Simulated assay, not measured.
Amino acid sequence: MHDLIPKVSVVIVNWNAKRYLLECLESLAGCAYRGNLEIIVVDNNSSDGSQEAVRKEFPKVNLIRNSDNFGFAKANNIGIKQCTGEYIALINSDVNVDAGCIAYLVDFLEKNPTVGMAGPRIIGGDGKQQLSCRGFPSLWNMACRALALDVVFQNSEWATGYQLPHRPDDRCSEVDILSGCFWLARRSAIDTVGLLDEAFFIYGEDMDWCKRFWSAGWPIVYVPFTASVHYGGASSANAPQRFFVEMQKADLQYWIKHHSAGAVFMYKAIVFAHHGIRVVGHFAKSAIKSSSRQSHRHKVACSLACIKWLLSYNKQQILNPVKA
């Protein structure tokens, strides 16, 4: 009977990403830990046939059908509350999980009982390594990004603290933030830290949860010896400009929650500078490079949308985000 109790529960939130979701579930078919794996799909009222496909092709998956798009954090919380495993993996619908990845991370946490969360190396669909972890945002590293100092001085640690490019990939290391596309968390740590903050509709919940893990005394570790593939943008591709604004909104939510009013004011000034530089730069590139004109114009539109939102938002929008 003991073997029937899952050691690991996996929660996948889906919104109109059927093809990616089915590939994700297929990859998990080879990831059973000690012969068992609990998989919970929380669907945010998709209209692309995701729910029907899961019921037909993966009948053993616990499918939770939300009546509306509740957002990423709330949907994950709904799934977490249904989990029975000692370890809980939150995995994006557009991730293909390598066969041994979950088992490797579980074994790592078993051997390191003080660690609260672990995450693997993340590889993009193009085969290139994605940003698997990063440092907490600060006024300094945000300014470095806004002024592109992290690009100009990419070999200097002082300018690239946010993206941690100098982090060694030949050993496990404690990091501030793990990529939110794949987390494996200890249930006892979640019981201490609490669930994801549902004020974050989409984006930002990764920074917030990781900060709360550290504040509660649960270290977070990046484990580079196991990897999974993240295609990225499965849901955001449905409305790219809107999701770009949602990302900016979530970043501001994080700063308001965790920093002083003065720091928030400085952060907003940096953000305005960042988007202003993007508008000028990509507009100029669109005039010069006809082959990539559409891409540059899209980036101009996204930054202008963020500037417009920053000039018009009110605190109520931050406290009660609307659906994407």
Rank of each mutant, 00 (worst) to 15 (best):
M1R: 11
V10N: 06
V10Q: 08
N16H: 04
R19A: 10
E23G: 13
C24A: 15
L28P: 00
A29I: 05
A32F: 09
A32Y: 06
L37C: 01
L37H: 03
I39K: 11
S46R: 02
G49D: 02
G49L: 05
Q51Y: 00
Q51P: 00
Q51N: 11
E52T: 14
E52S: 13
A53H: 03
A53C: 05
V54T: 10
V54S: 06
V61Q: 00
N62S: 13
N66G: 08
S67L: 10
S67D: 12
S67I: 08
D68C: 13
K74V: 06
A75I: 01
I78Y: 12
G79L: 07
K81A: 15
Y87T: 02
I88R: 01
I88Y: 02
A89D: 04
L90C: 07
V97L: 01
G100W: 07
A103F: 05
Y104E: 09
E110A: 08
G116R: 05
G116Q: 04
A118R: 01
A118T: 08
P120M: 04
R121F: 07
K128L: 11
Q130I: 13
L131K: 11
L131A: 08
R134I: 07
P137I: 09
P137D: 12
S138V: 05
M142H: 07
L147A: 14
A148R: 15
L149D: 03
L149P: 01
F153Q: 03
S156E: 15
Y162L: 15
Y162G: 03
Y162E: 13
Y162A: 10
L164E: 11
L164T: 13
R167V: 14
D169R: 12
R171C: 10
C172Q: 07
E174I: 10
E174T: 11
E174N: 11
V175R: 03
I177M: 02
A185W: 08
R186G: 02
R186N: 06
I190S: 10
D191G: 07
V193H: 09
D197C: 07
E198N: 04
F200H: 04
F201T: 06
I202Q: 03
G204M: 07
K211A: 12
R212A: 09
W214M: 13
I220K: 06
V223W: 03
Y231Q: 07
Y231D: 08
A234F: 00
S236T: 12
S236H: 00
A237I: 10
A237Y: 04
N238W: 05
M247W: 14
K249C: 05
K249H: 13
A250W: 00
L252G: 00
H258W: 12
G262R: 07
M266V: 13
K268G: 05
A269K: 10
F272V: 14
F272C: 08
R278N: 13
V279R: 04
A287S: 11
I288P: 00
H296Y: 10
L304K: 11
L311G: 00
L311C: 11
Y313K: 04
Q316F: 10
Q317S: 10
I318T: 04
I318K: 02
L319C: 12
V322E: 11
